[in-house]
Design a protein around this nucleic acid. Structure first.
Length: 286
DNA sequence: CACGTCCCCTGGGCGC
DNA sequence: TGCGCCCAGGGGACGT
């Protein structure tokens, strides 16, 4: 369930490994067996290509939308390890696997990077929807190449409004559209419902029927939800964990997601949109 | 090009 | 106690 704030918090937690070298790495049997069956489990390229991580030094970390990346340097060349947590991915920095106390995360470790300070960076992923790959350039990686500006960029609001007003999405429902990274990166299923509630917009509203002003308010609501989540340490729902194994409190601040009534006491409705459950209030949202 | 559907995958919760 | 079933949802593949 990690959305942009959770990924950002993971990235911040991982800053402490900047400067270390990856002296070795190990792949789980899930990954190895998946690759034998041509499934590219977790590692979305040949294991040969992935082996470039060995002996590289981590010189910085970055994030775009729900993707985070480790910028690596080896001899004279720079490249990046891009990671996506999928639904149930988590990183841990520990001395050994036994320090991962939650049994499912310990059981489902997928990649172990042995670092030059003696610690290990462990990527665990219960459902294995996550992904990792080496790319030479971040901008050349297609999902990132096509991504809209980050919400923190000055151009993000205009891009958001203008893309929605381009006419291309006139008939689309607003809810699945704000989860499209080409419009605004990082919004997942939970924060989409939350932001639409805050901006009083029904998730079933067609894009063409929403004014520029209301779209601007929606942009503000998304930013508000992201920043609130960051300040509360993210949402902890079953599968998201911070690097240190701790958990956030944002789930206690939800106004609609997973709830029966909205903050005004109105009964909430749910509807599956694009295969995902959506929570909304027909009194507060129009 | 946009959209719907299916798939990837496990664990937790529920009814019986 | 245990079995079968459903649900959670990020994103890619594929067909229309």
């Amino acid at each position: 369930m990690p959305e942009l704030p959770e990924v950002e918090l993971v990235k911040r937690d991982l800053e402490k490994i900047v400067g270390f070298e990856i002296i070795d790495y190990e792949l789980s049997d899930y990954v190895l067996n998946g690759h034998k069956g041509n499934k590219r489990t977790i590692v979305k390229q040949s294991l040969q290509e992935f082996s470039r991580v060995q002996y590289s030094t981590i010189y910085s970390l970055g994030r775009r939308g729900k993707y985070m990346y480790f910028s690596l340097r080896k001899e004279q060349s720079d490249f990046n390890l891009v990671a996506h947590l999928g639904m149930s991915g988590a990183f841990f920095i520990v001395n050994n696997l036994d320090e991962i106390t939650e049994k499912n995360f310990k059981k489902h470790w997928q990649v172990i990077f042995r670092l030059s300070n003696g610690q290990i960076l462990v990527y665990s992923d219960i459902r294995r929807f996550g992904e990792m790959r080496i790319v030479d350039s971040i901008e050349g990686f297609k999902p990132i190449a096509e991504m809209a500006p980050e919400y923190t960029e000055p151009s993000a609001r205009a891009h958001f409004i203008n893309t929605l007003k381009s006419g291309r999405y006139n008939e689309s429902f607003i809810k699945p559209i704000i989860m499209d990274a080409r419009i605004l990166p990082g919004v997942g299923n939970i924060y989409a419902s939350e932001a639409l509630y805050i901006s009083h917009i029904l998730p079933t509203k067609r894009v063409k029927n929403i004014s520029r002003e209301r779209l601007s308010n929606l942009f503000d609501a998304i930013v508000e939800v992201f920043e609130l989540s960051l300040s509360y340490g993210g949402s902890t729902i079953s599968d998201y964990r911070s690097v240190t194994g701790g958990s956030g409190e944002m789930q206690n601040k939800f106004k609609v997601y997973g709830l029966k009534t909205c903050p005004e006491g109105h009964e909430l409705k749910t509807k599956v949109m694009s295969g995902r459950n959506t929570y909304y209030c027909t009194k507060c949202q129009r």
